[in-house]
Simulated scan of single mutants.
Amino acid sequence: MSSPLFVRLSSSYFWYFSILGLVVPFLPVFLDGNGFSSIEIGEILAIFTATKIIGPSLWAIIADKSGKQLAVIRLGALLTCICFAMLFFVETYWPMTFALAMFSLFWTAILPQLEVLTLTSIKRSPKIYARVRLWGSIGFIVLAIISGELLDTFGSETFTIIGFIILICLYLSTLFVKQPRLGASSQVKTSRIIDKLLTKGFIMFFIAGLLLQASFGPYNSFFALYLRDLEYPAFAAGLYISIGVIAEIGIFIIAGRLYQLFGAIWLISISMFISAIRWYLTGSFAGSAWILLIVQLMHAASFGLYHSASIQYLQQHFAANQQNRGQAIYIGGVYGVGGALGAYIAGVLWQGGIGATQAFNYAAIVALIGAIVTLLMKEKHTLEVFK
């Protein structure tokens, strides 16, 4: 893989996950600073996340039929930037919800196509993919730490300025990426995907992933506010989240080797069992800085290991001209439905922080159920289509 290609792909991942490093920890802080209650925050985040149900599939159809992932990526990045700018002008519940929903709708167009474009460019090498993808984790860390300090110093309204700058950089980075050359047949022909979706293994994979993302609800929605309530210093949220992402980077570096040793299905199962333990410890023992440190290191499994293994599973399961649709269905259902349900339920259970332990215990149970479901998955060559 040439160095210029590596730099171009890595920079897009860096800026894409930089906005995630701002939004995941600090969007709830931004909304809290604007006077929204925990239930309203849960509802807004649920709607924000639910756009992943529709967005990826709509964009994937265009990308699969045209074979031009890059055009979709650039258009998505531009529209994302424009929609995010609406946050400069809105304050009340429904306008804020609309602005965030439209931002998310176009933002979801980017990652599935970027994943497929990257894997095509690097000839599906797990080793190179892991190295490109870890720059996304680096971007997340950098912005989580910087954003935490800036929001603490200048107030929650700084959130909008930081996000807008990041999204401009993301759009500019896509202008330097090149569309990999594909044969004409690969660009225009698509194949029937329903049989792949109705295999027992994929259905179990889908349900387990949905449950895992639902279990992230309390963490994604309220972790920064949770640490504030536990009287951690203002920089703690960005620091602990960054520790988790550093652990995630370590997993990405060795993910290719782990995949060769254990296979995707075993890695998915292991990551979900560890996630269940993580959420229980977070809800019951987060008052201890050392236990919280150990818990955050588990992010290597609950996100990094799961994500790497899931991408490899999807690459193995779907044909080349089904990849965009497969990625879109996965992200739309697993991250969209699962994430929206998790955010909404977390908002109901949180009760201004009083229900924090209850919310994380719910997350632990949901992740454990998902882990059990993964035990019903089978390898690709033994999958049978439901009749």
Rank of each mutant, 00 (worst) to 15 (best):
G353P: 00
L5I: 14
G333R: 02
S3P: 15
G352Y: 11
I53G: 03
A300Q: 09
P218Y: 12
Q260R: 11
G183N: 15
L305Q: 03
C83D: 13
F206Y: 15
P180K: 04
I331Y: 09
S288Y: 06
I194T: 12
F303M: 06
L75W: 14
L293P: 09
K52N: 15
V29N: 12
G163F: 12
E115K: 03
G148K: 13
S11D: 06
T357V: 10
A363C: 12
K52Q: 15
G338A: 06
F88K: 04
I122R: 01
D32C: 07
L170I: 04
M298D: 14
L281N: 04
A77V: 05
Y259K: 00
A319V: 10
G304F: 07
H381K: 03
S242R: 01
Q327K: 00
V29Q: 13
L230F: 09
V373T: 10
K127T: 13
Q187W: 12
A359S: 02
L281E: 10
I331F: 14
I39A: 12
F159T: 04
L376Q: 01
D229V: 00
I128L: 10
Y93C: 08
I73K: 01
F318G: 03
A340Y: 08
F273Y: 11
Y306F: 15
G339F: 00
V7D: 13
A255I: 00
K123N: 10
I251D: 02
S121I: 09
S10L: 05
I166A: 13
V72R: 05
V90Y: 10
W15P: 04
V334K: 08
S242T: 01
Q312V: 09
S221R: 05
R8G: 13
M86K: 01
L143I: 06
P218F: 08
I203K: 07
C169W: 14
Q187K: 14
R325N: 03
